[in-house]
Amino acid sequence: MASEQPGAAAQGNRPPLWGRRRSVERKRAALGYGLVVPALLALGAVALYPLLYNLVLSFQHHVLTEPGTNAVVGFANYVALATDPAFLGDLVRTLGFTGVSVAVEFAAGLGLALVVHQSFRGRGLIRASILIPWAVPTAVSALLWKAFFQQQSGFVDFALTHLGLPGSHLVWFNSPLLAWVPIIVSDVWKNTPFVALILLAGLQTIPRELYESAQCDGARAWQSFWRITLPLLRPAILVALIFRTLSAFLVFDVVYVMTGGGPGTSTEVISYYNWYKFMVSLNFGYGAAVALVITLLALALAAVYVRILHTRGDLT
């Protein structure tokens, strides 16, 4: 918000001026604030109010099917949450999913970005078409990949069988470990283009001269990649990682659509747990506590990244 007020911020540093001008400046500042008010109100209504209401709810016993029993219960919901092995299990699984899918997306996204950064015929077309998966709604891509991974009828089974590869005729969704493969593949397929796009933008800011002079100094391709491309790409990399890590950490739709957390609870993630408490248990008090804890965990993750950005001086 503050960035929308450069005039107001700068004003404070100025030496005091004669009365009339000051009053005009004050009026201008008032106009500035007035113009920001609608945005603040909107933010308050859609972000601050729900957050505060959620905070209040989380200290209550509030189960929708038990009307009239709402009572303030202090930290009871949080205590129950901290000792729920199901939540801790889901948290570990969520972190595992986040680590694997973000790592794969980063590697694939970087590869894609490097390729489409080269100049070749039809580059525009390729650049546009790699974005297509990203434009597909998550629920749709999850359904698509669910169908692809069906035993016998699915495309993956067909491909593995005809290529003579191991893994044909597997019932992917009936194995606690294998069920993650379709989930991760679907997530990677959809989100790699996003990573590639951000990294491509980063690549385009690296001056060509650096590579030319490196070449003159006899650097090999991998040396200039390691010494020039990667260090200069770091801000873009961190931005892509922040976005992807947070949204992978909060993953819900892929899991909900593909496995419903199954088989058993082996693909259950924290957002699914949260949804379950809200919409199946109808326990809004407990659900609110879970939501708040998830928000704090996500903020902590974001803080780690922001700290890295700051200490490296990449954030200006």
């Binding site: 099917t65 009936n174 194995s175 606690p176 419903g260 957390g261 199954g262 088989p263 058993g264 609870t265 082996s266 379950y276 199946v280 248990s281």
Partner: peptide
């Protein structure tokens, strides 16, 4: 029972854990 949706969810998990050989 008003608790049926929650009871059912637990049974669903149990069945799925058996069919997948986890339990």
């Amino acid at each position: 029972t008003p608790l049926y949706p929650r009871i059912s969810a637990r049974i669903q998990t149990a069945l799925s854990a058996v069919y997948s050989g986890q339990l």
